[in-house]
Structures are given as structure tokens and as C-alpha cells.
Design a protein around this nucleic acid. Structure first.
Lengths: 163, 163
DNA sequence: AGCCATTTAGTTGTGCACAACTTAATTGTG
DNA sequence: CACAATTAAGTTGTGCACAACTAAATGGCT
């Protein structure tokens, strides 16, 4: 254990000291606001994230999409099917590599971008944070994600057999 | 719109500038580490949060539990049934108010606390953050949650009819 | 007392996250 | 070339989040 707790073990179990709880709550609060703002666009928040990636990078195989979003095909396949049913994306097997499925925007999907531009602005306004605060919080969170990811794989390896 | 964006609208749609994405990623990274650490205890992360509240506050009606966790009965009812099936909690209708269901720890549930104490320590160590950093990040996130919550209800009221 | 609005749990249905597995195509190696 | 290992997508099953709804009990009000 590399930290030196300055409180008795009991306190560490107290809910209000658990950063994970704050993070989880903030994440769900974001979800709540996005739900309201995205209702007009007919998108859920994860669907919106997929659209963001496609708007930025153009057509991509499911695999690449998953790398950008940290999601696997188990999550993406049904989500993409719903976006396809909504007429926002196309999915077609790559001819060069039949294992791969290329995801691309339909005209309707590309057009939706115009209406989506206001969403991040309204979100930023809602946070009440200025650009610099947002940036620094983001940096901290990304550090956290990386630290947690490597700790999780280390712990998983340990509980399996020796690394 | 109360902020003055210093970047063109296009940049606001860029995934890597979206704080929500970082937050979402961090939240899922936490989930991943908790999944590994809680496997031994036979708990999921939301189940662990429920146990934390019960360990700290003792028996509580479902309603109060939901207030602590920001969750409603739609989420809690099935979750509590699983904890009950696992023998960790009891659920019984209050005699004073038949609408209310009191949730309490079984002996086994209370005993699990001893084994859970190590979890937050290992999480804290994994973050690589010191106590002060954790506290300040937590404060920021709580501010964020509150701002987002009130923005969401304002936006919901607006899209319904005038507030 | 009688009735209605509110409160509390629970149920149902949709969608996401993730583990474990399947299928099919591709790659690497002897 | 043949065949094993790898890779990509999809499927299945479990659990959570949340909206919308139901059922039952309570409390207030006339």
C-alpha cells in the first residue's frame, strides 16, 4: 500500500469520503442533462458519443470506433443497429477484410451535426465552469482513468496467477 | 449562453474536449477496478455502495437509502432482492407505516464489513492521488453534480411548458 | 366519517456495460 | 499448402439506470 492514510480505517468506508461515489454521481448527473438536451435529436448519450466520433473522423470500422470510445462490440453492435434503424448510420462489411464492418454517416446523420453543435455549449454553460477549469478537471480525470486502468489489469493478473 | 467560447463551434464538438467523455471514462475505469476488488466479496459496485450506506447508518427504509445514493426504487428494489438472496440484508415492511420497507443487515452482511475495509484503501492507492488531491477533486465533482442537476431540471421544465 | 392527493415500493420496458462465448475471416508458421 | 492462432463482429446473459406506470397505505381536508 503506497499511501499513508491519515484517518482510521472506519473513516475510509464513509460514503462521503469515497471519490468513486462523487464521480459516479457526477457521471449520472451529466447523463440526466444530456438526456434532456438530446431528446430533440432522438439520441441517447452513448449514441451521441458515437455520432461525435463519426462527425470528427468520418467512416470507421467498429473496432476503431470502440477504441475511441473505450467500448467493445458487445456494447456497440446493438447500439449501432439502433442508429442504423434510426437512419443515421450505414453499416457495411469491408470488401478488403470481410471480418470488419465499416460504419458511416447517412446524409441524415451528417445533417444532424448542425443541430448538435449547441449541445456542448449548453453543457459547458450548465457546469458554470470556465474553459480553463474544465480543461484542468479533464486532465485530472484522464490521469485517474489511466491509473485505474493499469491498477485493474494488475489486480486482475494477480488474482489469476502470478503476472 | 453565459460563457464566451474561445474556439469555433466545430472544436466544441471534438470528442477529446468533452469533459463528459473523460468523466464517463473515469467512472467506468473505477467500475473496472471495483469489479476486480469486489469479486472476492461477491458484490457488484452498486451493491457495495448500498452496503456502505448500511454499514454507516444502520437500518434504513428504501426511501432513505435512495436519497443517500441518488437512486430510486426502480433501481433499488431488484438490487436489494439480490442482496437479500445473497443473505446479506433483510427486508421487512415497517409496522408503523405499511408503505415503507426497512432494509437491515444480516449477521453475514455486517460481518462482510471487516473484509471490505481494505477496498477503499486499495482504490485510493490505485489512484496514485494523495488525500488532499482526492478531497479537492471530490469537491469539484460535487459542485459539478449540483450545477448539472439544477440545469437538468431547469431544461426539463423549459421543454415542458414555462416553469 | 368520506374522499382525494401524496407517498412508498414495486413492476415493466428500454437501453447501456461488460463478461463469456460463437462464428467467420485472416494471418503466421512449419 | 495446411492448420493453428489471432482478430473482428456479433450473441447471450446478468446487472444497473431510469422513465412510466401500478398498487397500497397514509394524511389532510371538508
Amino acid at each position: 500500500m503506497s499511501t499513508t492514510p491519515d484517518a482510521p480505517a472506519t473513516d475510509w468506508l464513509r460514503l462521503d469520503q469515497q471519490i468513486c461515489f462523487s464521480l459516479n454521481a457526477a457521471s449520472r448527473a451529466f447523463g440526466g442533462l444530456y438526456r434532456v438536451l438530446l431528446k430533440d435529436l432522438g439520441l441517447t448519450y452513448p449514441q451521441y458519443l458515437v455520432m461525435l466520433v463519426l462527425w470528427e473522423h468520418g467512416d470507421l470500422p467498429v473496432k476503431k470506433l470502440g477504441e475511441h470510445l473505450r467500448l467493445d462490440s458487445g456494447t456497440l453492435s446493438p447500439l449501432l443497429k439502433r442508429l442504423e434503424a434510426a437512419g443515421l448510420v450505414r453499416r457495411e462489411r469491408s470488401t478488403r477484410d470481410e471480418r470488419s464492418v465499416e460504419v458511416g454517416l447517412t446524409e441524415e446523420g451528417a445533417a444532424l451535426r448542425e443541430r448538435a453543435v449547441q449541445v456542448p455549449l449548453r453543457i459547458a454553460a450548465a457546469t458554470g465552469f470556465d474553459v480553463e477549469e474544465i480543461r484542468s478537471l479533464r486532465t485530472r480525470l484522464d490521469e485517474l482513468t489511466e491509473a485505474l486502468d493499469s491498477a485493474a489489469s494488475a489486480a486482475a493478473a494477480e488474482s489469476a496467477g502470478r503476472p
